[in-house]
């Protein structure tokens, strides 16, 4: 905030919600408009890059088509995301916690985990499809491997680095082992999970979509693969737009969850 000469506090332009929102809309419209115009005048080849005025009707058709499978596809992708996220998180928390509490275990597995973590895990998608088939399992498996390491390392660091003063203090206050676990260690782990929630859920979603794209007979990733097979760039872009929308919605939802669980944190750490 700045003080004007007459002593009235004024919110600078850059901090006004209305101004920011208008600029954001302007930038989006500019992007879509440029795309459309470049395509209309022929700078961008419509065959490869499609154009917004073709994409919007295609998505509308997907939605309104009689007997549409769009919602089933979305449902399948979201189910894979949720399962990959839930299983990856549970496994990550359990092992991250155990490794942080048991130094020997942590030390023994450190090289192996570092190696697995170094593999770009999207390349495992074909392996999982071969191993688990083109159904749900291979998509969930890819999501799990992506989510697992994020949650494992977040939990491991959070539990290992718990301030020993917290533990000493609750022990003096009469905490038993169980109380130390439930009042100090698990809340510290939970805070790490919440902090990594948006990243890990985003990866679960990406894992599901990529695995669908590579080998599946349903899901939104599958739509892109099908469109691609028919050289239908409008279909490919419609699928991408759809995925972006879903990802945004998912992230917005998780932001709500995150802020609900972060009330105790200083603002700059949220």
């Amino acid at each position: 905030m700045t003080q004007s000469a007459i002593g009235v506090t004024r919110v600078p332009l850059s901090e006004r919600a209305g101004v920011i929102r208008s600029l954001q809309i302007l930038v989006m419209l500019g992007f879509v408009g440029t795309w459309e115009i470049l395509s209309q005048v022929g700078v961008l080849d419509k065959f490869y890059y499609s154009r917004p005025t073709l994409i919007v009707p295609t998505i509308a058709e997907w939605i309104t088509q009689p007997g549409t499978t769009l919602f089933r596809d979305i449902g399948v992708t979201l189910l894979e995301t949720v399962l990959g996220f839930a299983i990856g998180t549970l496994a990550g928390v359990a092992t991250g916690y155990a490794f942080a509490r048991n130094h020997l275990l942590g030390a023994a597995f450190d090289p192996l985990f570092s190696m697995f973590n170094a593999i770009p895990r999207l390349v495992l998608a074909p392996v999982f499809i071969l191993a688990f088939g083109i159904g749900l399992a291979s998509k969930v498996a890819l999501g799990v491997t992506l989510v697992y390491f994020i949650v494992f390392f977040a939990t491991f660091t959070a539990v290992r680095d718990v301030d020993p003063a917290f533990i000493d203090n609750v022990r003096i206050l009469g905490a038993r082992r169980r109380d130390v676990t439930f009042q100090v260690l698990l809340p510290a782990a939970l805070s790490a999970i919440v902090a990594s929630l948006r990243t890990s859920a985003g990866f679960a979603f990406a894992g599901a979509v990529v695995a669908e794209y590579i080998g599946s007979n349903e899901g939104v990733g599958r739509r892109i693969a099908v469109a691609e097979a028919f050289f239908d760039s409008t279909g490919v872009f419609s699928g991408i737009v759809l995925i972006a929308m879903l990802a945004l919605a998912l992230d917005g939802l998780l932001q709500l969850v995150e802020s609900r669980f972060s009330r105790w944190k200083p603002r700059r750490e949220r």
Partner: peptide, 16 residues
């Protein structure tokens, strides 16, 4: 011993 009160040098309140 939990029959003592102990005020630590560092903040020991649970932040959450």
């Amino acid at each position: 011993r939990s029959d003592v009160g102990f005020i630590f040098q560092r903040d020991a309140l649970l932040p959450w």
